[in-house]
Simulated assay, not measured.
Amino acid sequence: MPAIVGAIKVNNVSSSGVFLVGDAFRVAPFSDAKTFAGAGSFNTGDYLNVRSDRSATNVNDSDVFDQNMTATL
């Protein structure tokens, strides 16, 4: 069944993003990332007061592969 789409404005499509207009059988973007962050890393807002005097981020990863990605097309 066809889709009827009005006006579209795209500001940004990231490298692992998908921009689709209309019908699709399958949309399967592939991306993976590993993020290490310490205490108070993702705080957002105005007038923050974050204290993390004794904080350490352990970035040792002994298993090397966490979530292996395979192509399922």
Rank of each mutant, 00 (worst) to 15 (best):
D66A: 15
F36C: 10
D53A: 14
A33V: 13
R54G: 12
K9Q: 13
K34C: 09
S62H: 11
L48A: 07
F36S: 14
R51K: 12
Q67L: 11
T70W: 04
A7N: 15
S16D: 04
A37R: 10
T35L: 06
A7V: 09
V59Q: 11
A24F: 10
D63R: 15
S41T: 15
T57Q: 08
S15Q: 11
D66K: 14
G17Y: 01
N11S: 08
R26P: 00
S41L: 05
Q67H: 14
S14R: 14
S31T: 14
P29D: 00
V64E: 05
N43K: 10
V13Y: 04
G17H: 03
G40E: 02
G38C: 05
G40M: 02
D61E: 07
D32W: 02
A37Q: 09
A7L: 08
G45K: 06
G40N: 02
S62N: 09
N58F: 07
N43T: 04
Y47C: 01
G45P: 04
Y47M: 02
S41I: 03
N49K: 12
S55Y: 01
S52E: 02
S15A: 14
D63A: 11
G40F: 00
V50I: 15
G17Q: 05
Y47L: 02
V18R: 05
G45V: 01
S16R: 11
F30W: 01
D63N: 12
S62W: 05
M69C: 04
N58M: 06
G45Q: 04
R54W: 01
F65P: 05
D66E: 09
F19W: 03
V50D: 03
P29N: 03
M69T: 14
F25I: 04
P29T: 02
A39S: 12
T35Q: 03
D53T: 11
V50Y: 01
S31Q: 06
V10Y: 04
G38K: 07
A37T: 13
K9S: 10
V10K: 11
S31R: 12
D63Q: 13
V10N: 15
F65R: 10
A3R: 08
S14K: 13
G17F: 00
F30L: 13
F65E: 06
L20I: 07
V50E: 03
A56S: 13
N12M: 06
D53H: 07
R54Q: 14
D53K: 08
V13T: 14
M69K: 15
F30R: 13
S62E: 08
T70V: 08
Q67A: 15
K9L: 08
G38N: 14
T44Y: 00
Y47W: 01
V10M: 07
N12C: 03
Y47S: 11
S31P: 00
